[in-house]
């Protein structure tokens, strides 16, 4: 068996295991796993933008919140869940494309602070708008089917991972995106329409959090600015991707699983304690100090994304 076949078989087995999971674990653990899967999707979406394109957003939580709120508002107007979710996804992606246009002109720290300011602005806006319920938040009718939410989250997060793999790791588009990360001016000089590419990546990396936010809102049935628009969401995406390994496909998956499950296990053992924050902070600092390429760098020798540019691809990149 070749290496590729082995990986494919492994992936297939993992997929089947994920599909069968609700049959074997209790609903308590199912909820926890559902949460972990949601964070895999979120961390992976952030990784598309920051890991592959080098644009560090500290405000990606805003798209999660926008998705959640649009879904909740549309469902309150009487739309069925699926319709509301599709519309919410479109609104989030469109919104990101519009916001991305001017914001992506900024680089480095300026981009990071601008996205953070933008996200905090959205949170404050939701607090004062007439149709979002302000600080009281919004309630939705409960749909008590844990399996439904498990499979929904699994579907969306798997889609985010698949898009990252096929579009950013394998396709020519991914090479262009990585060219922007390595040297934006040079890739522009080579004829790449960097603005168009950056806006596309930004919208794509906002789309998945938007959908996940919508599913989350329906799952939890009660959303308020402190739960779906807290800066902690963006912070955790950043930390998970960094912890696992930035700019790799496995990194955000590993990081999200480790951090989220670690958090829940601590929570089960000690209850709701602020001591968790001490451990979390220490873990972040230690990983960045001693393992800057993330946990996955322990298992792979190559530390950066994907393969290099093959000869036949050179022409394609600029074409």
């Amino acid at each position: 068996m070749t290496k590729n076949n082995k990986a494919l078989v492994g992936l297939l087995l993992a997929g089947i295991a994920m599909l069968m999971l609700p049959l074997v674990i209790s609903s308590f653990w199912l909820r926890i796993v559902t949460g972990a899967i949601m964070w895999v999707g979120l961390a992976q979406s952030w990784n598309m933008l920051a890991g592959y394109m080098g644009y560090v957003s500290f405000g990606h939580g805003a798209f999660f919140g926008i998705g959640a709120y649009v879904t909740a508002i549309l469902m309150a107007k009487g739309l069925p869940f699926i319709g509301a979710l599709v519309l919410a996804a479109l609104v989030t992606a469109l919104f990101a494309a519009i916001i991305g246009q001017p914001t992506l002109r900024l680089q480095g720290a300026y981009f990071a602070i601008a996205t953070w300011a933008f996200a905090e602005g959205i949170r404050q806006l939701v607090l004062v708008l007439p149709f979002t319920g302000g600080a009281n938040g919004m309630r939705m009718e409960a749909f008590l089917n844990e399996n439904f939410f498990y499979y929904s989250m699994l579907l969306v997060s798997a889609a985010a991972v698949a898009v990252t793999y096929f579009l950013f790791q394998k396709a020519v588009f991914g090479l262009r995106v990585r060219a922007i990360r390595e040297e934006e001016t040079a890739s522009q000089a080579l004829g790449l329409n960097t603005t168009a590419i950056k806006v596309k990546v930004f919208a794509l990396s906002a789309l998945f959090p938007g959908i996940l936010g919508g599913v989350y809102a329906y799952w939890i049935t009660y959303i308020h600015p402190e739960s779906v628009l807290t800066p902690l969401i963006a912070d955790q995406m950043v930390v998970m991707a960094l912890l696992g390994g930035l700019g790799t496909i496995a990194g955000p998956i590993v990081g999200a699983m480790v951090l989220f499950l670690g958090n829940r296990i601590l929570w089960v053992m000690f209850g709701d304690t602020s001591f968790y924050l001490v451990l979390l902070g220490l873990a972040i600092a230690i990983v960045i100090l001693f393992l800057p390429d993330g946990i996955v760098s322990l298992f792979t020798r190559k530390k950066k994304t994907g393969e290099g540019i093959s000869k036949e691809n050179v022409r394609n990149i600029t074409g």
């Binding site: 950043v238 968790y276 001490v278 451990l279 902070g281 600092a285």
Partner: peptide, 14 residues
Amino acid sequence: LAFTFGISVLFKGA
């Protein structure tokens, strides 16, 4: 940024 974020979480938690 990420490192000082970790430090801030640590301080706040402590």
